[in-house]
Every structure is written in C-alpha cells, then in structure tokens.
Design a protein around this nucleic acid. Structure first.
Lengths: 207, 207
DNA sequence: CAGTTCAGTTAACAACTGTTTGCCGGATGG
DNA sequence: CCATCCGGCAAACAGTTGTTAACTGAACTG
C-alpha cells in the first residue's frame, strides 16, 4: 500500500471530516439551507475562515455529505441484493437490514430524507442522481431473477423505483417514530413488500 | 349568511393571508427553518413587528401553511375516492387528478414534500398528523369496497398507507421534473398503482 | 539546510437577524 | 359623539452572519 499520505494532508482530511461530522450533527434539528458556516466551524473549534480551505459553500459541504451518506446505503443495498433465498424470507431480511442501517447511521438517514426534497438545489440533485443509480442497480438485480422473465426493461425499472421509494420511506419511518414503535413499522413494511411481490407475480397474467 | 365581518377583521385576514402567500413563495428556494421573519414582511410591504400580530413564530406560520396546503389536498382525495368505476380507469383518473393538483398548487405540494421531513418539528408533526388522517380516510373508503371483503382492518390500513405514500411521491415527482417529463412520470405511476392493485386482488389467496 | 507551500489564524467589514418599546390613527361599539 | 380597541409603524437593541485580507508557522521539496 503506497497510501502513506503526508502529515499535512492527513491533518487536512481530519479537519475536513470533523467539519462534515459537525455539520451532520447540527442538521439533526434544522435543514441544510439554514446551517451556518460559523456554526459548523464553532463546533469543530476552528476559525470561520478555515472553512474555505475545504468547501466553497454550505451547498458544497452538503454534496459531500450526500456522497458519504449514500455510500453507506450502497453497501446496505448490495447486502440485501446479494442474498438469495425464498422471496418471503428475503423480505424479512430486507426489512431487518434497513432497520439495522437506521440504527447504525441515523444521522445519515435523516440527512437524506430531509434534503431529498430540501431547499438546496445542488444537494437535491446529488441525492436524486444517487438514488437513480440505486434504482438501476436494483433493476439489474431484479432483472436477473427468474421471476422477471418476460418483463419489459421499463417495467422492471418501474418496479425497482417502487422498491427504492419504499425503502427510503421505511427508513425515515423508523427514524421518526419512537423506538418502541419499530416492530410495528417493520411489520407494516413487510406486509407492503409482500403485497408488492404478489402484484409482481401476477403482473404478466393480470386476470 | 351572517358572515359579514367588520372592516378591521377583514383587513387583518388580508395581511395574514399576504404573509402566508409571501412565505410560501419564498419557500420555493429554501426551507422553512431558514426563512426569516423580516424576509417575509419585506415582501408583503409591512413592518417586521407586524408579523407578531398574526404569528408567534415562523414555525407557527408553517403550521398554518400546513392546514392550508393539506386542506386543498383533502378536496383532491375526496374527488378521487368519490368516483366509482372499474379499477383500471380509476387508476387513470387518480393520476390525472394528482397531476392536475400539482399544476394548480405547485407551491403547496412543494411545501408539503419539503417540510414533511424538514427541520421544524412542529411542522413535521402537523404534516404527519394530517397525512395520517388522510390514511384513515382512504382506509375507510377502501374498506367499503367489495374487493376488501375478508381483509383485516390492519391490512386495509397498511394498503392505505402505501397509497398515500405513493401519492405524495408521485406529486413530488411531477413537481421536480421538467414539464415535458410529466407523461412519462404519469405512466410509471399508473403502472405502479396497477401492480399494487394486482397484489391487492391476490392478497387473500397468495398461492 | 534554504525556500516554498498551504492549513489555519486574527481582525475587521458591512449587512443582516429576531425582539422590544412606545406610538399613531382608523375602526368599533356603547 | 366619545372612549376603547388594536393592526400596523418607527426606532433602537444586541447578536449574528458570510467574506475578505494579511499573517504565522509547521510541513514539504529539492
């Protein structure tokens, strides 16, 4: 590994990461469009002007957060898609993985849910682009399944979209509800997925 | 009608409405949590202190906007639910009504989508409560349909939730995409609803 | 070891913010 | 007609904001 980066660059990454984490923390109780530059630097314990060494804007920091947050989600998606079992237990697994992800990275999930339709265009677009990539990925995995034989590419893509949207909704439900409601939310999510998969099975013979 | 309200109260309502509309307008490019009191009064052409004659907070104004925005949505929902026809053309109608609603009240739709997971707790909760009421209403209508015979109350509710979530998603898709993409979005939404209704038809005999 | 690069600092800038106080003047109601 | 109410105003308040400039000093380069 030649990834031995110099002392200076290491320090730079460190404070950059600290800025990102401070921002993420502050975003638990407000939106990105009201997050102040000074607010962030104050938490990190660094001068306001130092911010510009890492980001042009708050929007810029937001875009960086998108990459970080959806990177971890990416791993989650692959985890679910990789497993192959009977459809029913796959549903159970999916919901479990989502719940675990929300428990592990609540701030990331909150950020994505909040800023997906939030007030900062650049961030909205970054999230949309990344979620579209997820959709493609899910579509590819679905298309490879025997159940999708005879499906048009477009129909597979619309199903994938339904899954991705449902995933985001479920995640944000877990987040906003008190912890003791989690089992109930998981149950609803499972049944919704079950219903969708029923519709999927009868798609080509809608009698 | 004894609703002849005095000149003074009429004026008060007028500026109150002006504040709401100015706020809604400014929210097209930012989130509620970054919307300033002075910003709003400046647009209306009124002194900053006048704001307090109508709202305690920005959050307070936000809650008022929720009622206004979801009031109009309420009408829309009833429109869709009232019509009774074969399920397929009902889907077409629903998507049409949603598209028309977004065209008629884009700012309201944007506001709901944005602040549903936004940074102001009181507003989030107001939206959640109102959407839950929608869910109940949809559930009631669904339960009355012959197709729901033998369904548990809880299953009807989870289906209703799926519909409401899908509705909000579709509306915000219409909003964020360029106008020429609208037909494509409508088409995807229709097929998704069709798939869900297929799953619904086979819910009780999942063979 | 000398010279350069550059992350972070200090200090100052004008512009803005929410909130309070006291006041004005037209509508309201007896 | 007169006293009261009350929506809106002007002015001042202490804080805050983003952005700029010139600097310091440690890490890098050759």
């Amino acid at each position: 590994m030649s990834n031995t980066l110099g002392v200076r660059e290491a320090q730079k990454r460190k404070t950059r990461q600290a800025l990102l984490e401070a921002g993420l923390g502050l975003l638990e109780e407000q939106s990105l469009s009201s997050l102040g530059l000074r607010e962030v630097t104050r938490v990190v314990g660094v001068a306001p002007a130092a911010f510009y060494r890492h980001f042009r804007d708050m929007a810029d920091l937001g875009v960086a957060l998108v990459e970080e947050a959806l990177g971890s989600l990416h791993v989650m998606i692959r985890t679910v898609l990789a497993e192959q079992a009977d459809p029913e237990s796959l549903i159970d697994r999916s919901v479990e993985v989502v719940a675990a992800h929300v428990r592990a990275h609540p701030a990331h999930v909150r950020f994505i849910a909040r800023e997906r339709h939030g007030g900062v265009r650049a961030v909205r677009e970054a999230i949309a682009a990344e979620l579209a990539r997820f959709g493609d990925e899910v579509a590819e995995a679905l298309g490879a399944q025997p159940l999708s034989e005879g499906w048009s590419e477009d129909d597979v893509r619309m199903l994938a979209g339904l899954y991705v949207d449902h995933l985001v909704m479920t995640a944000s439900s877990f987040l906003e509800a008190p912890p003791d409601e989690a089992p109930r939310i998981a149950d609803v999510a499972r049944r919704q997925l079950l219903l969708i998969s029923l519709g999927r099975r009868h798609w080509l013979r809608p009698a």
